[in-house]
Simulated assay, not measured.
Amino acid sequence: MSFATYGDLASTFHTRHQTAKLKQDMELLGMELSSGRKANLATHVSGDFGPIAGIEHSLKLLAAQTQGISEAQTMVRGAQTVLGNIQDQTQTLTSGLISAISSQNTGLIQSTAVTAREIFSSTVSNLNTSLGGRSLFSGAATDGLALADAETILADLMSLVSAETTAAGVSSQIDDWFMSPSGGFELFGYLGADEELGPFRLREGEEVSHPVKANDTEIRNLMSALAKSAVLAEGALSGDAASQRDLAKISSNELLAASDNLTFVRARVGSIEARIETASVRNTAEKSALQLSYNQLTAADPYETATALQALYGQMESLYTVTARLSNLNFTDYMR
């Protein structure tokens, strides 16, 4: 019987090769144990990367859509909050005007007019709100203000109504300023764009647009009604208490209608909010499902990995033990 034997040099190279391979395998298993992912995906999926590539593409697409949803939520929620603040202030002012008119107290009407001027300024400021460097109510021109400042608007209104001696005349001039195509609002009051802000992409084939601009009819009517009280504080119809009371009454009646119209605007914004929220929930669910599938394809079982790693430790220890014993052999010991 013949036996295959190795020379000392060949045996040394063989041992080194085995040691290097065991160390490499242990490093790979260590990486899998720490990362929770298969270190050699090609072997794990038998070279078929199609499913993994498809899932990764879908996850990247969802990430982009999630960014669009986040931007849409910021803009629409911000608009809803601003419109809510404006409506709350408007309703408070309307109640104050009705009380002042009923009392027939000239001083109370004047003090309420001062409040109206403050609320007008607050409304302009609210409509100039910017979030994340983007103006909420200026349409496509998100890099600038939606409206000129309240002082400029009131000053131009006063130049128009200063010669008027009746509440109807003042009311008509203010309406023209806000609603006429050649009025001051169109010429310099509204600073935004007529075009709407580009749509936000929520999902494949689903988009939403920001639904409100500061030059919308509902907003103009509201500002016009506010201005009719605010100009009283600026001196309109000065010395004519009856006409001032009539103008305050016109303002309060129009504010009631404007507040109702603003409710419809907020409902429209709310429906957009609901669509965005629905898309967000769907995207979150789809992302979870894709991540679960990705984990099933790429995850390394921690128990199996730890067991294989322990087995390699055992092999390494055995190899070191055998190598140590072989290195201690000598001819004298063999002859004994």
Score class of each variant (00 low, 15 high):
54 G>S: 13
172 S>F: 03
78 G>D: 08
116 A>D: 06
41 L>T: 15
178 F>S: 06
54 G>Y: 03
229 S>G: 14
77 R>A: 11
136 L>W: 09
180 S>E: 11
125 S>K: 09
237 L>Y: 12
246 D>T: 08
188 F>M: 08
112 T>R: 06
119 I>D: 04
177 W>C: 04
181 P>S: 10
84 G>W: 06
93 L>I: 11
316 M>W: 03
41 L>M: 14
222 L>T: 00
189 G>W: 02
237 L>K: 12
49 F>E: 07
313 Y>W: 07
118 E>T: 13
292 L>V: 10
145 L>C: 00
156 D>L: 03
55 I>M: 06
286 E>A: 10
322 V>H: 07
207 E>V: 11
265 V>W: 03
102 S>A: 15
309 L>H: 02
174 I>F: 09
19 T>A: 14
307 T>G: 03
98 I>D: 11
41 L>N: 07
201 R>D: 07
157 L>G: 01
262 L>C: 08
275 R>A: 09
113 A>K: 07
156 D>H: 06
121 S>H: 01
60 K>A: 13
79 A>T: 12
229 S>P: 03
129 T>I: 10
80 Q>D: 15
331 F>P: 02
16 R>Q: 14
302 P>C: 06
77 R>V: 08
293 S>G: 03
279 A>G: 03
140 A>N: 10
207 E>G: 01
102 S>H: 04
114 V>E: 14
6 Y>F: 14
297 L>V: 05
146 A>T: 04
224 S>L: 00
182 S>A: 13
95 S>R: 03
102 S>Y: 02
156 D>A: 15
239 G>E: 11
189 G>K: 00
90 T>L: 13
74 T>M: 11
97 L>R: 03
163 A>S: 15
307 T>P: 02
143 D>G: 12
76 V>M: 10
195 E>L: 10
207 E>I: 04
27 E>K: 12
317 E>W: 01
175 D>C: 01
172 S>C: 00
156 D>Q: 15
289 A>K: 05
265 V>K: 06
137 F>H: 07
21 K>Q: 14
175 D>S: 11
287 K>F: 09
288 S>C: 00
160 L>Y: 01
282 R>P: 00
13 F>G: 04
248 A>V: 02
286 E>Q: 13
202 L>F: 02
151 E>P: 00
256 L>G: 09
96 G>V: 05
320 Y>V: 10
160 L>P: 03
304 E>T: 13
4 A>Y: 05
